[in-house]
Design a protein around this nucleic acid. Sequence first.
DNA 1: GTTGAGCGTT
Length: 307
Amino acid sequence: MSHFGRSGPPDIADTYSLLVLNITFRTTADDLFPLFDKYGKVVDIFIPKDRRTGDSRGFAFVRYKYADEAQKAVDRLDGRVVDGREMTVQFAKYGPNAERIHKGRVVESVPRSRSRSPRRRHRDDYYRDRDYRKRSRSKSYDRYERDRYRGKDRDYRRRSRSRSASPDYSKGQGRGRYDDDRQRSSSRSMSASPARRSPSPRKNLSPRKASPSRFERPGRRGRDGRSPSPRSVSPRVRPADSRSPSPARRSPSPRKNISPRKASPSRVERPDRRGRDGRSPSPRSVSPRVLPADSRSPSPRNSDVDE
DNA sequence: GTTGAGCGTT
């Protein structure tokens, strides 16, 4: 039960919702309650869950009774490491009580310690979606549509951000994961210097921490920190493509290709977008014609141009 | 067992 015993939103007449982002997928309202309750009266905590899987989505809504307390919680708990993850606490913009917050002075009082600018776009989307829902007749259908659209949009944004290379690497964008993966992969060569992985590059602007690592649970932070991303699992492998014996032939097995001495730190971006996108759900070649050894067409053309 | 720059519950 995500709620505290009530089935549904409590009295939102005088409550102020806070949006808690970047929490672990296993963090529950019970875990967040003591944290937020310390700074004020928490009316309710709600953690949205996925309709399909039922798991947490990674964010939660904490309702405070008073705005000042909520703001204090935002100032204090924003950036706090919970369960090995740095959660982001801010006032909820969209929601049942958003109007109330907007009317009040809280909307302007938000310190916005961490400048998270790119958010207007989502707002637009949300409003657009909302409007669309009004026009739509089927509600449940719309829900699924929204979910689907959201996932797609999310993926697209991720790629865009990756290329944009925003200076504010809040979470490293998986850089640490890559390093870790590389390090583990090339166990023989310890060239990968893990010195670049900073625990928390962001500046903790919480001068006085009531309890820095009070609720931090030892031992659990390592599990989420190194979540292996499926994107970097296997580079594009071309089956049955032994033609064009170029000098730098890429052997079918990616493992061999990785030469230990070649410790070039140039992390080339793997254009795995199409791989993940699954643009071709239908196998273009169910039976990849196995090129016989005798019929190996030299094909001087560079077959690398696959883009 | 799986994700992650994200905004809501029958």
